[in-house]
Design a protein around this nucleic acid. Structure first.
Lengths: 337, 337
DNA sequence: CTGAAAGCGCTTACAG
DNA sequence: CTGAAAGCGCTTACAG
């Protein structure tokens, strides 16, 4: 199907309205220099001809396309789905269309989509980058001079170039650990999250501050960030480590998998063992028992961060290098003592 | 931040390589008419100058932008998240960047984003449209002559213009009803889904074929497609309609909400009452009990449909007007008899 | 308040 | 095999 072979141009509109194409261009930009009557005539001509504005052509003169690149490491994870949905909405609100790509934690793919978006001339990037990136993608962005922010995780340390906005995971981890301790837990495990990543370290950092209140070191079950990994680990713990009485997970997904695993083993979460997740995705309010967690307000985060990016772009206000949004404890039934 | 103020052009590359800009353009398009040695010289110049291809400028001559518009009614619903993720990936694989918008079931917003994407010159649309659309958005698309497909739901009846690809919801509904009947259910309720919508009607249609095997008409609890609605309805049924022994839901989200509601009321799903969902989102394998459902393979659907759209675009193969992908029953513990 | 002209960064015949 | 020229659909000073 050949698309809009004869899409009308401003020249067609100009002819139909009996004015010059400059005048048409002026009314398209709501210039106040055009006489009201002329403006109306042009408007009518636009409707008659079925003209649609061609931003691509307009962009050739100025240097902004009205496109922003949104790069997500794992779109299917509800935490990042919410990031994508909220930032996209904020961009639309500011008049920008969003070009999206899910990189599936693949740094090669990440670099390819960055370059594709650069060719399309995106005005800025909002990236939840892959963990294993080698910085090449950011080098490409830097060379093009396109502003870019890292959100919810960081893969490039040049935060003066690529500001890093995230949540206060360390404080969240502290709150989670404190909560379990206050509820009387003595043997605590941390489950999920890949080793040697900043975000994993942050999310388990809270435990370190309570070691003297624990019986022995916390057990670490690092691994995939998935329901499936949580499920398996719960089975494992039920069978081999029944002394564990409290669990902090990397995120809610892992916790939800664990609850299903414990249920299958006949272990009552909230009574026999306490669990607290991280993120507070919607699902966590509808599990049984309901899941205690650290609430991260991604919707607010996304909107606010998108606005910061656009302000950088349009008004030249450089974002601070690093910002951590507050989190809070939400105690539900999975950690009732 | 001013973006790429002095982004190099093919002229800069041409100068650096000591050739004309036409030659640079030729190597950019992998033309075989360029001598190998010249090609290498140009390649080096590209790297030296840090040139990035400007698709916007290139598009002005031809008429395809390499952008496709993906419009989703509710991106936060995992069923549609999967659609977005799988189609985006398929488009990327075919060399297209995806411009995305979540319309949040708002027809006004839908029309606005359609027009924004039209201005950006998307080559095609893949839409999971809002239900309440008045067809204006499709009129706009039609006028621009841009190919568009309706997926997973239909809001415009001109399927010869806007082909409708979906899943065989009616058959799925039949399988679900049959399953509950075979398991001995006599009083069945259908929960969730807004009234007077084709998709709601399809998803409950299976019950009609078994009325003679039921005690009385099925009870209908139509409403929001959400965990919250499921939760409330379960409480309601537990308190007021304890004769109901089997439940079909509009989708898994509703079913998951119901399972939490029943659990809170002390009703054992799978024993006291049987539930079957629809969609088979990942979450359904990790509830307790695990959720029986109708499996819709959205990942395969998305990839396949994206390819059909691109083939339409590139190779002029017009899609069939309507296509329904197969679904299948997945019996798990929520409907163990 | 409106029109004629140049130019944005490419591609595409057309010469050579 | 490579270069000079026209043109894609806009915007932007600049005249008038």
């Amino acid at each position: 199907m050949s698309k809009g072979t004869n899409r009308p141009t401003i020249i067609d509109v100009a002819k139909s309205a009996g004015v010059s194409k400059s005048t048409v261009s002026l009314v398209l930009q709501h210039s106040s220099t055009v006489k009201e009557e002329t403006r109306e005539r042009v408007q009518k001509a636009i409707e008659d001809t079925g003209y649609v504005y061609n931003r691509g052509a307009a962009n050739m003169r100025g240097n902004n396309t009205g496109l922003v690149g949104l790069i997500i490491n794992d779109l299917r994870n509800p935490y990042y789905t919410e990031l994508a949905a909220s930032t996209q909405q904020a961009f639309a609100h500011r008049g920008y269309a969003t070009v999206i790509a899910d990189t599936n934690e693949d740094p090669e793919l990440e670099r390819r989509v960055v370059n594709s978006m650069l060719e399309h001339g995106v005005d800025a990037f909002l990236m939840a980058p892959t963990h294993a990136g080698d910085g090449k993608a950011f080098d490409d962005i830097l060379r093009a001079g396109t502003p870019a922010m890292q959100v919810l995780r960081k893969s490039d340390d040049r935060i003066e170039l690529f500001p890093h906005f995230s949540m206060d995971y360390q404080h969240g981890s502290y709150l989670a650990a404190q909560h379990l301790i206050n509820n009387g837990c003595k043997k605590i495990a941390f489950v999920g999250g890949l080793a040697d990543r900043e975000i994993t370290n942050d999310r388990m950092s809270g435990l370190a501050q309570f070691v003297e209140k624990l019986e022995g070191e916390p057990s670490l079950y690092l691994g995939d960030v998935s329901r499936a990994f949580g499920y398996q680990t719960a089975i494992d713990i039920a069978k081999n480590s029944s002394e564990i009485d409290g669990i902090m997970t990397f995120n809610d997904l892992v916790a939800i998998g664990m609850m299903a695993g414990f249920a299958a083993e006949g272990i009552k979460v909230g009574q026999d063992i306490q669990i607290i997740g991280f993120d507070d995705i919607e699902e966590s309010r509808f599990t049984y028992p309901t899941l205690s967690t650290i609430h991260c307000d991604v919707a607010t985060f996304g909107k606010s961060t998108a606005d910061v990016l656009i302000d950088w772009l349009e008004n030249d206000v450089t974002p601070q290098k690093e910002k951590k949004f507050p989190v809070k404890l939400v105690a539900r039934d999975s950690s009732a003592s």
